[in-house]
């Protein structure tokens, strides 16, 4: 009985979301609003640690921003309005997923462009090889003599024949 209980407890603990830094006092009473808040804060970068979202980060600034996001939601802002509020202060860099705009075109489409360029290059090269196979230059007299010597003066035989 005791062991079963311990196992159940361990499993329950293992199932907890391990990474979120949200402390209980930050959580909103309204579960749908809280879910929206979590969704938003997962998209926002913590500028103190730079590779964590503010949902994951324990930095005091991340906590302040989590609370701020929840306040904006409670005040009735839509998700995109809340994100715009934070971006207006911290710039596009707070977005973990960079927006598609003129300055980020190279970032978003660069890899596809590189792939396309390489594909075109390879295709052109393959086509050139196929349409115009380069015929080997005929042997000159000197080379022919050497070859004949190597072949023992015999006419070439097929390799591997008995």
């Amino acid at each position: 009985m005791m062991r079963r209980l311990a196992l159940a407890l361990m499993l329950a603990l293992a199932a907890l979301p391990a990474r979120a830094a949200v402390s209980p006092d930050e959580i909103l009473a309204d579960p749908t609003l809280e879910a929206r808040a979590r969704g938003i804060t997962k998209q926002l970068r913590c500028l103190v640690c730079q590779n964590q979202s503010i949902d994951d980060s324990n930095a005091p600034l991340a906590r302040d921003l989590r609370i701020l996001v929840r306040e904006r939601l409670k005040a009735g802002d839509g998700d995109s309005a809340v994100i715009a509020f934070v971006v207006a202060r911290y710039g596009d860099f707070v977005l973990l997923r960079p927006p598609v705009k003129a300055t980020t075109w190279l970032l978003w489409f660069g890899p596809a462009l590189l792939f396309l360029g390489a594909a075109i290059f390879l295709w052109l090269r393959a086509r050139r090889r196929m349409t115009a196979p380069v015929a080997p230059a005929p042997l000159d007299a000197d080379e022919q003599k050497k070859l004949d010597a190597l072949m023992g003066g015999e006419s070439p035989r097929r390799r591997g024949s008995p």
Binding site: V48, L61, D64, L65, L68, R89, G91
Partner: peptide
């Protein structure tokens, strides 16, 4: 004291 004005300036440290 709350850091709110800092956030309005985009302060991160």
């Amino acid at each position: 004291r709350s850091g709110r004005v800092g956030i309005d300036f985009g302060v991160y440290g």
